[in-house]
Amino acid sequence: MKIRYTNLLFIVLFSMLFVNGQQSIFQEGAYIVYSEDNEKVVLKDTLFKGRRALKLDGTSSSIALLDDINTKNFRVEMDIAGQVMSGLGFHAKDGMNYQFIYFRPQMGNTSEAIQYIPIYNGALSWVFYNYPVYETSTDIKSLEWFHAAFEVRGKNLKVFVNDEPEPKMNISILDNPVDSGKLLLRSLFGPSYFANITWQALTNTEIKEKTLPQTDFLTKWEISEQFPRDTITDYFDNILKRANVADNWKTINMVEDSYVNFSRYFKHPRGVLVAKTSIEADNQSIKNLHFDFVGRVKIILNGNDLFTYKKIRFERVFDSTFSIGLPLKEGKNELIVIVEGDAAFFGKGFRYLGRNQHTNWGFIARVED
């Protein structure tokens, strides 16, 4: 009889944790909460509109990290009631590197309601990864409960809302330092409530990756080390001199990502750098350079200044927001882009997990005849 009771107790506990193969996760005490100053915080579950929930207020409690599940192919479901930005981080190496999918309830029924971003070294590069691919619409409201399901197989991410059969988002996720890892919850600029969170491992189904399209986006660059930002007028000229003297260039070429996202390459993105590339021309000609950027930028071709933007640009980045003529000579042409990023927009930088840094830093560029 003792054995039977023990088995019965095990079955009851097992059934509490698993429903249709789904394991209840983010149970109180099973995760670590960090403030935006990277301090560990002890939280108790709260009650919000009839549901027992984990509350993150976005400042004194910013992220909740669950490190006892190594996720790769999975389905996570939860109820969310958020004010501004509420989301799930997955394939997390740590609190600085992960895939992030989040909701903007205040933007319900607009193209900005759901957004996916790869987080590199703490950078929330939301101005790069936007509509029509990485942002989409759904019917949600601020601080009202809705149900969300996230399904990842290989590089495919699907997001379902309120048990609708068709996903609101169905995309290929971009490379990050790991293709599996921890889970985390995150709230920004206001409170978010998370309830009834479950996780289920999915079979490692092979999914054919889409062939990368042949494009004329410039993705192959040599980049310098990062240098401190300055407020002196025309300090970019000095940055170029310092980069050439240091002669410490790193080749980058992420062909799957048309955005040149510098936060990917620095553990603490917060400076200004020089990027250079070569363009071969069969003869002397004028082509078009289509581009967009964040922060401040300067573009130089064969030693001649082509474009300078001295204000701080902080808007969504799209192909062809700016276009200029590119006078090419026959043979090799050196194109240089000096880029500062968005840190100055926030004063000393965007605050995340105890440090000020860039959250958007880079550009998009392509050459067209």
Rank of each mutant, 00 (worst) to 15 (best):
P132D: 07
E225F: 03
A344H: 11
L335E: 01
A123G: 14
A365C: 05
D369Y: 04
V19F: 13
D230V: 04
Y265H: 13
F217W: 04
N261S: 10
K210C: 02
G50S: 11
N170H: 13
I69W: 09
A343I: 03
I117D: 11
T136Y: 08
F160P: 09
G154A: 05
K182L: 12
Y129K: 09
Y98I: 07
T215I: 04
H268D: 08
D79K: 12
S24D: 05
S278K: 15
L183S: 05
L56R: 06
Y131M: 06
A195L: 07
G295K: 07
L218I: 15
A281M: 00
R75Q: 13
S278G: 03
I299A: 03
A64S: 13
A30K: 12
T71Y: 02
I300D: 02
N130G: 15
L143T: 09
I114G: 10
I11Q: 09
M169E: 06
W199P: 02
T203V: 09
L184E: 05
D179C: 02
D237G: 07
L202F: 03
D230T: 14
I300Y: 00
I338P: 04
Y134S: 08
L47T: 11
L212T: 11
L289Y: 05
K276I: 00
P269W: 02
M96Y: 13
R355I: 08
S278E: 14
Y31D: 04
F363Q: 03
S142A: 15
L185R: 06
N109I: 06
T277F: 00
L54V: 12
V260F: 06
K310Q: 15
E225V: 12
Y98C: 07
Y102H: 14
T6N: 08
W221Y: 11
Y34A: 01
T138P: 06
E164T: 12
A275Y: 05
K158H: 05
E222W: 00
W221N: 05
A81R: 10
L335K: 02
F128V: 04
K220G: 03
K93I: 11
L335S: 00
V19Y: 11
A30D: 15
L202C: 04
Y352G: 02
R316C: 05
Y131S: 14
G190L: 10
A30P: 00
F74S: 11
N109R: 12
S86P: 07
H91V: 08
F48A: 07
F314C: 03
W199Q: 08
N360R: 04
K276V: 02
Q357A: 13
V272P: 00
N20I: 02
